[in-house]
Design a protein around this nucleic acid. Structure first.
Lengths: 339, 339
DNA sequence: GTGAAAGCGCTAACAC
DNA sequence: GTGTTAGCGCTTTCAC
């Protein structure tokens, strides 16, 4: 390797030499420790500035394993899902303010990948982790919790593990949507579910059933389809639904990506929304209004979820003994023209 | 701090003790170095497995500054832009295959933030960096290039710096779009530009002008608006355009987010696409077909851009002396129904 | 108020 | 084929 990365030749040692003090003193100045002569401090601070010295984060992390490395891990199931992007934005804004950097790992709902990333994250000695586990019994994440690493779960909780959780009331959100549909007079309301063993999918199904019940509508098995929370799944399951001998008059889609997929199918079939079939989605997007037609949807405060999660995490890192908490945020029905 | 992060008490030392050898030998086994007795190797491998030993990435990075830390930095201007998400996916897929983790930094087109992240990335001793600089004279990135850190630029090049670049032929892409519009008979074609000092914005403007020229259409100053590459900017500038005494009959939008913003305005005004005004966008999205109406757009192979960038970067890390290269990928006009 | 030194986990040069 | 050791940059204990 001929090329040498010349960056950051600066080190405590360099600064110390220039200041004629020991590295310990410089370290104290950098970390605002007490017990350093005010004059020495000023002198060193000047040199630090001149040399543009910045502490080496890697060395710092190696030294103090589990704290102050200013590095957070984020484990996301699907980066194509705009919901997680918004969550990520929320996390990022808070992290930035507190000078934390983020290692973002997108495991694409692949458990092998999830495992690898979890290992990497620990091996990188992150100070804490924000994760959306594959499901509530996700042993891989639970194991990490057991190591004592501060963790906040978003979107999905964890059974048998004492962690902070930030999510929305999925059941209620789904209820609101389906109830709205029922009150509008739709009779055969279908539900396209995301991955069925996700707590959020199940909760939404419960909300869906609650609403049917509340409106004395029967729940037809053939109108409930289970997919994998992805675009393709929305395309396919919607197609199945619309090919039924008695197709639904309205569809409640279990997430963002499914909604988009379902829309694609509906358009391909040349069906009119909402006249031929109505659609209401879980998850709103900032461009939902530009969809065809403007989409009625249950909005999750995704940005806020991320923000809260990051705040919770940082608070836990600085105060590990705080009892864990569950934050349940509210959803909001965004009424537009798709039903 | 009462809680102790118990993770990874494992270390070379632990394994070495258990195997009754020195840490050097264990290190050799881990790194598949030659010169180790096959039997010893097998014995150690077993212990490694039993102990679930995984090398500490932080220590490794501290030791070998500029290589083999298996960590890459990604510097992205706007994570809300689906284009960058696709790029990120491409990067991530390649990185994962080669066991690299990613530190993803979204600077939200904020130069202060960009600077901070650049510092952090270097301070983390990443092996290499994929970046979309704010503009082609981005001194902050150029400085990093000068340190010798392997860098690949995406979407935007860098003047006066010898780096690998992966992008598309923006001028040609824009030409294709506007030429298509002109051939369709539109006479007053507007252009909503992203941040004007971005090379991509300028190239797209050139392509736009080329196409007007080629079709003997005049370029009206009032029909060219410059924004900041964001959704809001699309909303606002489109509104200005449509309030003109002689409004455009077609709009060419400079990127994803601007397109979405423009659509929002057009819908708000109750205008019909393409009858009242046509629209063609730079950047395609996988859900463009579900927009109102299905959007005609210039598709950038975003995923491939990310993929190529990551491959280029890894190749440069392993072979720093390879001459730099420019990869220019092709765009594709996705014809749907918005004009 | 300051310095010397140990040690975080690892690699690589060198010795045997 | 294997072991010893220095050192990456940092924090922290213990002297002074």
């Amino acid at each position: 390797m001929a090329i040498e990365n010349v960056y950051n030749k600066n080190s405590l040692k360099k600064v110390a030499e220039k200041a004629g003090v020991s590295i310990a003193t410089v370290s104290r100045v950098i970390n605002n420790s007490p017990n350093v002569n005010p004059e020495t401090r000023i002198r060193i601070e000047k040199i630090v500035k001149d040399l543009k010295y910045t502490p080496n984060r890697v060395a710092k992390r190696l030294r103090n394993r589990n704290a102050s490395g200013n590095l957070l891990g984020v484990l996301i199931p699907d980066i194509q899902n705009p919901f997680y992007i918004e969550v990520l934005r929320g996390i990022e804004d808070v992290a930035y303010k507190k000078k934390y950097a983020l290692i973002v790992c997108n495991f694409s709902q692949d458990e092998t990948k999830e495992k690898l990333y979890l290992d990497i994250l620990q091996s990188e000695s992150v100070d804490g982790l924000i994760a959306a586990p594959t499901h509530e019994h996700d042993q891989k994440v639970i194991n990490v919790v057991k190591t004592g690493l501060p963790i906040v779960c978003v979107d999905r909780g964890l059974v048998d593990a004492d962690v902070d959780v930030v999510l929305v009331d999925n059941r209620k959100g789904a209820f609101t949507a389906v109830d709205y549909l029922a009150k509008k007079g739709y009779k055969r309301i279908a539900y396209i579910s995301g991955i069925p063993n996700l707590p959020s999918s199940r909760e939404r199904e419960l909300g869906y059933r609650d609403a049917l019940d509340a409106n004395s509508l029967p729940a037809y098995d053939e109108l409930i389809r289970y997919g994998d929370s992805r675009h393709d799944s929305g395309v396919k399951l919607c197609d199945e639904l619309l090919n039924l001998s008695k197709p639904p008059d309205a569809i409640f889609t279990g997430n963002n990506l499914i909604t988009l997929g379902a829309l694609e199918t509906i358009h391909k079939k040349g069906l009119k929304i909402p006249d031929d079939v109505a659609i209401i989605g879980f998850d709103d997007m900032y461009w939902s209004i530009s969809l065809n037609p403007p989409l009625t949807a249950v909005r999750q405060p995704a940005y806020e979820i991320g923000k809260c999660a990051a705040e919770q995490l940082i608070s836990r890192i600085t105060n590990p003994d705080r009892p864990t908490s569950n934050m349940i945020l509210k959803t909001e029905l965004m009424i537009r023209n798709s039903c």
